[in-house]
């Protein structure tokens, strides 16, 4: 395996973005590239993650390339997934030896459309999508399964939200934050019972950019490279009725294959758009009680679809680089009831 380090990271999340994809992405890409110490033409490969359905602009993913400089032609690829999967593709390409560095970016702009309807399009198009269930409802079904099985309580869900919103107060990229008590949150009305507003993701528009570099070059570029020590992604069956919704086996397997349990974790950054999903994931990852979860606030504080997973990885890397820990698990999750899961283990030098 080639050692690959995250050498630079930048993000932007706002509640509603007025600029087009190029205009939102360009300044953040510039910040990340300048932060990497590499010149633009020293970056071997570019890989992005986005979905044009979100803002309703066909081929926005192609247009966005203008923002990172696409002429003369560059070597690039795109996944219709969270940018975390674009990072995976770049990491694999580096493992093949074909390239030694990569720029990864993702963007999500959900404010122009009806995110609930757009997300229904990811369901089984024969029997699921035509009923137009929104993700709040499907996640509500999952949450109630967990409540019924005694896997979570509404109080624990509120505790997760309290902690996330408190952590978010020190995250300049959070769009929802605050200091609440569990009692205050539990007194709020349901949005889609058993979920309240704070149990649901804080949708935002934004972009994320990361630069990764292999081997010694990474050591030259930064004081404390943050190394990718393990990387894996897995998927659960698409039919909700087939899954045990109190479990997310694909997340557990991805973390295991990435080697999360091989050594002590100082903290984790995970993608749990709904509060009960954080509680499920803690169990799936076998986290000790003293492991801090989502110092960033996670998706309850800012949830830029297609970017939030890459944000978790970047947030973890920035924290390690700054000395806020030596070893962390970062996780990205996508799909109804977190069907698709990706885990990456990061270590500081």
């Amino acid at each position: 395996m080639r050692d690959v380090a995250i050498v630079s990271f930048a993000q932007s999340n706002v509640a509603v973005e007025d600029r087009n994809e190029i205009e939102m992405l360009l300044p953040v890409a510039k910040e990340a590239i300048e932060g990497s110490g590499l010149a633009r033409d020293e970056i071997d490969f570019t890989c992005s993650g986005s979905s044009d359905w979100l803002q309703g602009q066909p081929f926005a993913f192609v247009m966005a390339l203008d923002a990172v400089g696409s002429w003369p032609p560059i070597k690039e690829s795109h996944v219709e997934q969270d940018g975390a999967w674009a990072l995976y593709e770049a990491w694999v390409k580096i493992q093949t030896g074909e390239v030694g560095s990569a720029l990864i970016y993702s963007f999500g702009k959900t404010s122009p459309g009806d995110i609930a309807q757009v997300q229904a399009l990811q369901l089984d198009p024969y029997c699921g999508q035509p009923l137009w269930p929104d993700l709040d409802s499907l996640s509500g079904i999952q949450a109630r399964s967990c409540l019924e099985a005694g896997v979570v309580t509404e109080k624990q869900m509120a505790e997760v939200a309290c902690q996330a919103l408190r952590n978010a107060q020190s995250n300049p990229h959070a769009v929802r934050k605050g200091d609440y008590t569990v009692e205050e949150l539990l007194a709020k009305p349901y949005r889609v019972s058993p979920l309240r507003d704070h149990d649901c993701p804080a949708n935002s528009d934004g972009v994320t950019v990361m630069v990764v570099v292999a081997g010694d070059r990474a050591k030259q570029l930064c004081d404390r490279p943050v190394w990718i020590r393990g990387f894996d992604h897995r998927i659960d069956p698409p039919a909700l009725g087939v899954r045990d919704l109190t479990r997310i086996p694909s997340a557990a397997l991805a973390a295991e294959k990435a080697g999360a349990a091989d050594d002590k974790l100082d903290f984790v950054e995970i993608t749990a758009p709904y509060s009960h999903q954080e509680l499920i994931l803690r169990k799936e990852f076998g986290l000790a009680d003293d492991v801090q979860v989502n110092p960033s606030g996670g998706s309850l504080a800012a949830h830029t679809l297609m970017s939030c997973g890459l944000n978790r990885i970047g947030d973890a890397a920035v924290r390690i680089a700054a000395g806020g820990g030596d070893r962390a698990l970062a996780h990205a999750g996508q799909g109804p009831c977190l069907q698709q899961n990706l885990a990456v283990v990061l270590e500081g030098d």
Binding site: E17, D18, R19, N20, E21, I22, E23, W53, Q55, G56, Q57, S111, P112, G113, D114, Q117, V118, L121, P125, Y126, Q129, P130
Partner: peptide
């Protein structure tokens, strides 16, 4: 076969240059 029409409505923002 099954037919499922999709209609999505957006409040599109053109961005600065456009």
């Amino acid at each position: 076969s099954v037919t499922t029409p999709i209609r999505l409505e957006y409040d599109f923002r053109a961005g600065k240059a456009q």
